[in-house]
Design a protein around this nucleic acid. Sequence first.
DNA 1: AATAAGCACAACCGCTCTCCG
DNA 2: ACGGAGAGCGGTTGTGCTTAT
Length: 201
Amino acid sequence: MQSKAAACGLLGVRKGSWTAEEDLLLRQCIEKHGEGNWYQIPQLSGLNRCRKSCRLRWLNYVRPNIKRGQFTMDEVDLIIRLHKLLGNRWSLIAGRLPGRTTNDVKNYWNTHINKKFPSPQKITRDGIAQIAVTTTTTVIKPKPWIFKGSSSWPMMKEHEMVEKPKEDDKGFWQECVLLEKLENKFFHNSGIQSAYTQEKN
DNA sequence: AATAAGCACAACCGCTCTCCG
DNA sequence: ACGGAGAGCGGTTGTGCTTAT
């Protein structure tokens, strides 16, 4: 496994909050050289930052089309259902919410949802609570799946497929269908065409 | 007005996964 | 098949802001 020094390329890299100048350098560098080449980004950009720090900053803050501010009820609804289905797979959950980052979703879950509703028994009144109570599907903690045929939920890259649920797992499939409907409603309300819709078209 | 406590979010750390030689 | 390097992910911590006392 990699050492910390190897992970960060060199010792003595800058830590802590990013400045506007650093954000600008990072943005310009990625616009010029493209996303993904994180090993070279610190050198190419002139930033004295660990590559992991650069990646995180880009994904969670600098990247265009990041949606900030309050989560809508539809988004919260979707997060709760996806979490019930996928567990703490924040990257997958965030991937279903356009403009929301993994960190955003994870932080929101930990600070709002998880604290408010630590266990289903304590949920009683509002809409979020009812959603959480009425679904009893067991949390599935799989490797990512890909669905063949007409269903496109969840949408994963083909190479990510490792396993998929049993065909007779009715609870799971019902939840998938429900989520697909919820997503369509969410995308319709937000005026965004979902990847699901795009794929069908 | 001062200070403590709580909250929200940004960032870091360490581990696993994936790719490639 | 194996090992090393880089990328990605989730858990945790740090920090700054807000609210309560």
